[in-house]
């Protein structure tokens, strides 16, 4: 037990938790915006798989992480257009459409992977701050700061982007006309429509932002792991959707949920690797992240009910 509480192990655990949380955070923030506009997207996992494969394959072929990230976002954007068209303009049932997107993403990413790659080949890992080409030198001394240096500065750029996205999404939702429109169409689309706010346009854009972030989340996952594999996400996208619910549709609670999930997962793995959790309890330990995160958010996050028009297609009568 004492071994776990050495500073270096604690910090390494925290750093792992943050790294682990990033794909969840990106996907869940995107889904938050979509759900605030009244659209549930259960296809997040499928979009992540496609975005993740696109990013992985691009890096494999071009060696450019930037290109990979761009492709991941673009794939997400494209899937978003499909999903938005089906749900916003064709008024399709959101739950089923989302499952369709998921299954398509799951199958098609695997097909592309089998056809184009086959055996998983590692790609070069995402550089952490200090290894960034050109500017890395600036950050090197920061990492040497005792105790917090590694925790704060030994991450890749996407990690910082995801964390900065939290206040940005809050600002976007609460302080901009677009965000106000998003909240309005998610709550009472008739009212927004009566004041000339285009429900379709607002939801369309919200879905595109959400699915682009899902694509980015997938790219982050595959680039962080530097590999792709059949069903790489392993249901991560669904957990992200759950985090939105349990995070009460608020970016800060979604962040808390993602970090907590990451922390419990990282801690569980650490404890098992240090034999603090006995081998016999490994099945129970595997469930711990989900259970603890849900319990914590249920208890802590203010129990705001969700957007009233969530999953309800809008059309003028």
């Amino acid at each position: 037990m004492s071994q776990f509480f050495t500073v270096s192990v604690l910090l390494a655990t925290l750093a792992t938790a943050i790294r682990f949380a990033v794909p969840y955070l990106l996907a869940a923030l995107g889904e938050t915006i979509g759900q605030r506009s009244g659209v549930l997207n259960l296809g997040v996992d499928g979009i992540m798989l496609l975005g993740g494969f696109g990013a992985y394959y691009t890096v494999l072929e071009t060696q450019s992480h930037l290109a990979g990230i761009g492709v991941g976002i673009a794939v997400g954007l494209f899937m978003g257009i499909v999903y938005a068209y089906v749900t916003v303009f064709l008024h399709a049932e959101q739950g089923i459409s989302g499952i369709g997107i998921f299954l398509f993403g799951l199958g098609f990413s695997d097909l592309l992977f089998q056809e184009l790659v086959g055996t998983p080949k590692p790609i070069k890992p995402l550089p952490t701050l200090d290894k960034l080409p050109g500017v890395g030198g600036i950050f090197e001394p920061l990492i040497d700061i005792p105790v917090v240096g590694e925790l704060l500065f030994d991450h890749n750029l996407l990690t910082y982007f995801a964390l900065l996205l939290v206040p940005f999404v809050t600002w976007l939702l609460m302080k901009t006309t677009f965000g106000m429109n998003v909240r309005a169409v998610g709550e009472n689309p008739q009212a927004a429509d009566s004041l000339g706010v285009s429900v379709a346009k607002t939801r369309f854009i919200a879905i595109l932002i959400g699915s682009s972030l899902a694509g980015l989340a997938g790219a982050t996952l595959s680039l962080q792991l530097a590999i792709f594999q059949h069903n790489l996400t392993n249901g991560l996208g669904f957990i992200a959707v759950a985090l939105v619910y349990f995070g009460a549709w608020q970016p800060r609670w979604v962040l808390a949920g993602a970090l907590l999930y990451g922390l419990v997962t990282a801690t569980r793995i650490r404890w098992q690797s240090l034999d603090i959790i006995p081998q016999s309890a490994s099945d129970i330990a595997a469930m711990a992240p989900a259970i603890i995160t849900i319990l914590a958010l249920v208890l802590l996050a203010s129990r705001v009910r969700g957007p009233a028009a969530l999953t309800k297609p809008f059309s003028r009568h």
């Binding site: 006309t177 106000m180 429109n181 909240r183 309005a184 709550e187 009472n188 008739q190 009212a191 927004a192 009566s194 004041l195 000339g196 706010v197 957007p307 009233a308």
Partner: peptide, 19 residues
């Protein structure tokens, strides 16, 4: 009423108007 319950009075009034 064509009001958005979770928005404030000011937000409901401002909805749809340019800022």
């Amino acid at each position: 009423f064509m009001l958005v319950p979770t928005l404030t009075v000011a937000e409901n009034v401002a909805l749809g108007l340019p800022s």
